[in-house]
Design a protein around this nucleic acid. Structure first.
Lengths: 206, 206
DNA sequence: ACATCCATACCGACTAGTTGGTATGGAAAA
DNA sequence: TTTTCCATACCAACTAGTCGGTATGGATGT
């Protein structure tokens, strides 16, 4: 178990960092082996092909991030709207350091693979929308609690949060500056606040 | 001029479609030549390297889309807020057909190149933020007109619109379905409406 | 009018190096 | 012994980029 899993896990961890740095296509099998510190034989022992590693990397990413958000302190909040806003605040705080340290593996990977590698695309979709699903119950409950009758669904708002984050990563990459991403997350927070603001009430313009 | 420019233009047009389909890295020089119907000699006659074509493709994309939006009918509107909302509506309407037909070349390309090809990254940034700039004056004027005093800037909202669109493209690619992108653009429109809603007034929860 | 010159546009075979993937064999666990 | 795990050596296909060459057409000199 200990050594058995290490080569595979090292390869998957190497995949996460390399895909974030260079993308999936530009990452070669030799790159992966070098960063993981294993041989090519180990690679093809665990993965039948580079594509299969792509699928496994997406699933690995889901597992790693899933655990991160499950253990995060914002989960302790009981009020659903507060928990949603705390989630957004956490996403904002995670925008620290190098872009490759906070950007999304599957968002990057799906752009390159959606038309050529359907299995990788589907694994990326499962990761993104699986994560979005963790927000749906809170959004739905917040809508109920605050009496929000809307022409949008909890699912669509959950997906929208992920769209904003993915787009924020792209803008940060383009500008080579995380500030623009932070501002977009601020807009997202403001949007959620406006959606759930008490009705029939004077609102400030900010 | 007529035949002189065709080989280069055909290569640039081929680049736009191929990058949208497969990404920049996966697109080979031979792919580009085949789709453009020209020889490899022609390619390297016009571009010193594949990277140089990447930069030129981003600039070509800026020119093509710049003209599209400059000529669009929403520009005829005189009210700045209405023009902004009409822009968003146009972006929504453009989400038709295959994903490769509406997704963003530079948004795709910058994900793969931001760390490895700074010149391409900068060309992509110029395209994205140059486009965002075309919205800033309208947003600023709308804020003035409607008396919006905000802790956000016109620039940041303009950038945010692009973040939402880029993120919407990613979600559409992952799900292989444009509906999720349309819903995100709807959230964006709703956000802008809420930001500019008249203050001190009852608002509906939708 | 005609010959010369030369720049631009383009072609396609070629190469040096890289790519994903395979074949084989050995160490260690079961 | 058999299976799992992993290393080394290797390969065929593909990659970006090169190179020698052709075609065209405009400018210039005579």
């Amino acid at each position: 178990m200990s050594k058995t899993q290490t080569a595979k896990t090292k390869l998957l961890d190497a995949a996460l960092s390399l895909i974030r740095e260079k993308g999936f296509t530009a990452t070669t099998v030799d790159d992966l082996c070098a960063r993981a510190g294993v041989s090519k034989g180990a690679f093809f022992h665990y993965f039948k092909s580079k594509d299969e590693l792509g699928v496994a990397a997406a699933q690995h990413w889901s597992a790693v991030t899933g655990e991160l958000f499950e253990r995060a302190s914002f989960r302790e909040r009981t009020d659903p709207l507060e928990r949603l806003l705390a989630y957004i605040e956490l996403r904002r705080e995670l925008l620290r350091g190098e872009i490759a340290a906070f950007s999304c593996v599957v968002g990057t990977m799906v752009q390159e693979t959606y038309g050529q590698h359907p299995q990788i695309r589907d694994a990326c979709a499962a990761s993104i929308f699986g994560h979005a699903d963790t927000l749906v119950d809170d959004i739905a409950e917040a809508m109920r609690q605050r009496g929000v009758v809307a022409d949008w669904t909890a699912e669509s708002l959950a997906a929208h949060t992920q769209a904003v984050l993915q787009g924020a990563f792209i803008l940060a990459k383009a500008k080579n500056d995380v500030a623009v991403a932070i501002e977009s997350v601020d807009h997202l927070r403001r949007y959620v606040e406006l959606l759930f603001a008490p009705p029939a009430q004077t609102r400030s313009a900010s």
